[in-house]
């Protein structure tokens, strides 16, 4: 069996979630190949070749792959698919955009956001926002799978010595073009790969008050997140959102501040190793999943926390 892992990257560096996807691919058994498709991204291919467990890296460089637009990326993957039994990607927004298109072109089902490999054709995936776990068996000869990266350990970034081979570009579909991107610039770690995450909810009362969280985040080397309520209230941008419809995180430490703990939010953080909740409402559901709960006014607790961390 040979598995093709679609690398997530920005043409400069390999996205962290790809390392988790490689682990999931390794659990399926067989050889693991990684496809790096982009433009001017040879450094990413070299990085992928060093990942432990990777046997081969395919590098497809063309201007039309620079922004990973789904139509051309899917056409490329389908052109390579004959040699593979499984095509797999991390369930990033890019993986979720491209892989269902690949699956449909191959006339197979996609198995979305698996959290466990039971056997090469059987997987566990969350449904109903993680309130139920379904074990599903695929009858398709070729399988297309996305992986919830927080449920698989990251493969070692070094130790491998895979060969890098050029893959030819597929025909340009000409269906879509890239116009622009507005990416949040932050010195803090990326939300989905941070070891510590501190999130604020509606209790923060305003976007300005998030600086109280940011001060603590900087002392801890943490990423800053938010609940859907805080995003909907306009306190912080959309990409801060942790939850069923936002990002799924599983850091070593998750600190929820002024977050009540709606099911929607819990679905995005309940696999964190240690959960801390700070909320003035002692009945808040977040306390039911927190390892350490502090009933306190966050406007007093956050400055105290900042102080205590020196």
């Amino acid at each position: 069996m040979t598995v093709l892992v679609l690398a997530d990257h920005d043409n400069k560096a390999l996205g962290a979630a790809t390392l988790n996807a490689v682990t999931a691919a390794t659990e399926l058994g067989g050889d693991v190949h990684v496809l790096v498709a982009g433009n001017g991204c040879a450094a990413v291919a070299d990085e992928a070749a060093k990942v432990a467990g990777v046997a081969k890296v395919l590098l497809a460089e063309d201007a039309m792959y620079a922004d990973a637009l789904a139509e051309n990326m899917a056409a490329l993957i389908v052109s390579l698919a004959d040699s593979y039994d499984v095509i797999l990607a991390a369930a990033t927004t890019s993986g979720k955009n491209i892989l269902p298109r690949v699956a449909a072109l191959l006339d197979v089902a996609q198995i979305s956001e698996i959290v466990e490999v039971v056997s090469p054709d059987t997987f566990v995936r969350p449904i109903y926002a993680g309130n139920a776990m379904a074990t599903v068996q695929s009858s398709d000869a070729k399988k297309v799978i996305t992986v919830r990266s927080t449920n698989f350990a990251a493969a070692a970034a070094t130790g491998g010595s895979a060969s890098v081979e050029a893959a030819s570009a597929a025909a340009d579909t000409g269906l879509s073009t890239f116009v622009g991107a507005e990416l949040s610039k932050s010195e803090r770690p990326e939300l989905t790969s941070a070891k510590i995450v501190i999130s604020g909810g509606r209790g923060m009362q305003s976007g300005d008050n998030f600086h109280l969280l940011e001060k603590v985040a900087d002392k801890l080397g943490a990423a800053v997140g938010a609940s859907r309520a805080a995003v909907d209230a306009g306190f912080v941008p959309n990409d801060y959102q942790v939850g069923q419809t936002g990002k799924v995180v599983a850091p070593q430490l998750y600190i929820a501040v002024g977050i009540s703990g709606a099911i929607q939010h819990l679905a995005g953080m309940k696999d964190s190793k240690v959960i801390v909740a700070i909320n003035k409402d002692e009945e808040a559901p977040i306390f039911q999943v927190a390892d350490y709960g502090l009933v306190a006014d966050l406007f007093k607790a956050l400055p105290e926390l900042d102080e205590a961390l020196g």
């Binding site: 922004d67 890239f178 991107a181 507005e182 990416l183 949040s184 990409d239 990002k247």
Partner: peptide, 14 residues
């Protein structure tokens, strides 16, 4: 305009 990891991306579709 699409919501992607890290922010927003705008594309033009035929």
């Amino acid at each position: 305009t699409r919501e992607v990891d890290g922010g927003l991306q705008t594309i033009e579709l035929k």
